[in-house]
């Protein structure tokens, strides 16, 4: 008799690793496509009045029209052209600043290192949204200022991550060997330590892409990010809130944010499982 007497009865074992990663990748690729090819994928100009105001979804306008008669579907797809590049930009700059400062702090230590960490601690003491709002309000409206605000909010996360990694790798033997063979400190840092420190930062950055998109949309929703008539998803949802009974106005941008953030989250989760087999 061949009977399995395991504790919980299992339905088919699914490979969690590949499925969400695949779905996430598909979603992200779709939106990347939208970012680059939106003008060719849509029929209507996102900024022009192309139909009657507040029309429900129809064959002409797949997601209906908004209060100014603009096609919601076009605006949704074009929104990617604002959200994605901003998100990538913000994360890239935040990683650049944060990782550098974190590496410096972890490797050189001393007064500068401690000062950097104090700055990190203070910045991380704020609820991110509030700080972003305060900075964006001080700088003035506009997506660019919102981006600066987000970079300010985000860089400490990577500083901490990088510092922790550097501190750990610093103690490893091949580093001692490099120092003993006379390598200069900067060389030791860049050639021997940093190459081993990228993984956690990379995973975090990927997962953060989604969170940055959310934050940008949130800021625009409040009115601190994109200015009209820019088809940014957050401000589109804000329009949708004013047109509460025309439910389709907010549907497109909402689904857009949901899917793209979900896509990044799937990828991040898959990466996380890949690097940490314990949670499989």
């Amino acid at each position: 008799m061949t009977i399995s007497l395991t504790a919980p009865r299992k339905v088919r074992r699914l490979q969690w690793l590949s499925l969400p990663l695949a779905i996430g990748a598909v979603i992200v690729i779709f939106w990347l496509l939208a970012t680059f090819a939106a003008p060719w994928l849509t029929v209507y100009d996102p900024l022009e009045m192309v139909g009657r105001r507040l029309q429900a979804p129809s064959w002409d306008h797949w997601l209906g029209t908004d209060a100014l008669g603009r096609d919601v579907f076009s605006r949704t797809l074009h929104g990617a052209r604002h959200s994605l590049p901003i998100a990538v930009g913000v994360v890239a700059v935040a990683v650049a600043i944060g990782a550098s400062l974190g590496a410096v702090s972890g490797f050189f230590g001393g007064f500068v290192g401690a000062a950097i960490m104090r700055l990190v601690d203070v910045t991380l003491s704020f609820p991110p949204m509030l700080l972003a709002m305060a900075v964006a309000a001080s700088l003035g409206p506009g997506l660019g200022n919102a981006a600066i605000a987000m970079v300010i909010v985000w860089w400490p996360v990577y500083a901490r991550l990088m510092r922790a990694q550097v501190l750990e790798v610093r103690e490893r033997e091949h580093v001692e060997a490099a120092v003993a063979s006379g390598a200069g400190r900067v060389r030791v840092l860049t050639k021997h330590i940093l190459p081993l420190c990228w993984t956690p930062t990379l995973i975090a950055a990927t997962m953060d892409l989604g969170q940055v998109i959310l934050l940008a949309a949130s800021l625009s929703f409040i009115g601190l990010g994109a200015t009209p008539p820019t088809p940014e998803w957050g401000s589109m949802i804000s329009d949708g809130a004013s047109q509460f009974y025309s439910w389709w106005v907010a549907l497109g941008p909402g689904l857009a944010i949901l899917t793209i953030v979900l896509g990044f989250n799937f990828i991040g989760d898959g990466l996380h499982d890949y690097f940490d087999p314990r949670s499989k």
Binding site: R13, W16, P20, G240
Partner: peptide, 27 residues
């Protein structure tokens, strides 16, 4: 229910929560 449908469903449901913009969901 490690590695079964329930596990995956629970994880997806949780991920959804982190992905939906709060203001849109509220609306």
């Amino acid at each position: 229910f490690h590695n079964t449908v329930i596990d995956h469903a629970a994880r997806v449901f949780a991920l959804f929560g982190s992905s939906i913009p709060v203001f849109w969901l509220g609306l």
